[in-house]
Amino acid sequence: MERVTIDVVSDIVCPWCYLGKARLELAIAEVQGEVGVDVNWRPYQLDPDASSTGTDYRAHLINKLGGAERLDEMQDTLRQHGREIGVTFRFDDIKVRANTLDAHRLLHWAGIEGREIQDRVATALFKAHFEDGVNVADHEVLIGIAGRCGLDSAVIANLLASDADKAKVLDEIEAARQMGVNGVPFLIFDGQYAVSGAQPPEVLAEALRDIARMKAEARKGMI
């Protein structure tokens, strides 16, 4: 069975990224037994100017999107898409426009421990923001998520209190922008093929099958 690695460039406060994560999980489930899939979570910041204490979430989005009506339409669409695959968006409970740099640092450290833990942390961060409405820039929130996901809370607390890996995460975000990533989610398959946006599960599943098929054919050609 061929294995495919997917680097998911995303941001924790991006609703399409949360939706895209759920759709990717459905796609991976669909190809189980046909294609092995390894997922790495890569950082991106849609709103790098947000503060660590946060400012008003809804007011910021109204200003960004050009009006409350447009925002409400987008959020209604996202709620509908979410209901179809079991994702709950509670936008009214989100009060804080949070900076996600420290959340991405946490994801980086989780990735060092392994893909399973990193994926667990990614899910917990999305849920904290979009379902629980908590500030994902708050260190206590991040430490709590780390502990529940199997990381050492004391170690994470010390790392968050320092500047550890800030430059590394920012460099990775800049590298993504230099590659042409200007919107997320952005999926990179085996470092070669890119898929932009929260694509339907069937599209992602077919992409996985196609890439696995090409890898298998290339391998045969080398024999």
Rank of each mutant, 00 (worst) to 15 (best):
T5V: 13
I6A: 01
D7Q: 13
V8Y: 08
V9N: 08
V9P: 03
S10W: 08
S10L: 10
S10V: 06
D11I: 11
I12Y: 02
I12K: 03
C14F: 04
P15K: 06
K21W: 03
A22M: 04
A22G: 07
E25L: 06
E25Y: 00
L26H: 01
I28V: 14
I28T: 01
I28W: 00
V31F: 00
V31Y: 00
G33A: 02
G33K: 01
E34M: 04
V35Y: 01
G36Y: 06
G36I: 10
G36K: 11
D38I: 07
N40W: 06
N40K: 13
N40C: 07
N40R: 15
R42F: 08
R42D: 09
P43L: 05
Y44F: 15
Y44S: 09
Q45C: 07
L46K: 05
D47M: 11
P48L: 08
P48V: 08
D49W: 06
D49I: 11
A50S: 11
S51T: 14
S51V: 07
S52T: 13
S52N: 11
T53V: 15
T53E: 15
T53S: 14
G54S: 09
T55A: 12
T55M: 06
T55Q: 11
D56G: 06
Y57C: 07
Y57G: 07
R58L: 10
R58H: 10
A59G: 04
H60L: 10
H60N: 12
H60D: 09
H60P: 01
H60S: 12
N63D: 15
K64P: 04
K64D: 07
K64W: 03
L65Y: 14
G66L: 08
G66T: 11
G67S: 10
A68L: 13
A68F: 02
A68S: 14
E69F: 09
R70P: 10
L71W: 10
L71F: 11
D72Y: 06
D72N: 14
M74Q: 13
M74E: 12
Q75K: 13
D76Y: 10
T77K: 13
T77C: 01
L78S: 11
R79S: 13
Q80N: 14
Q80M: 13
H81A: 15
G82S: 05
G82A: 05
G82M: 06
R83L: 12
E84F: 00
I85K: 02
I85H: 01
G86A: 06
T88P: 00
F89W: 03
D92N: 11
D92S: 12
D92V: 02
D93P: 01
D93I: 09
D93G: 12
I94D: 02
K95N: 08
K95P: 01
V96Y: 10
A98E: 04
A98I: 08
T100L: 00
T100I: 03
T100Y: 00
L101Q: 03
D102V: 07
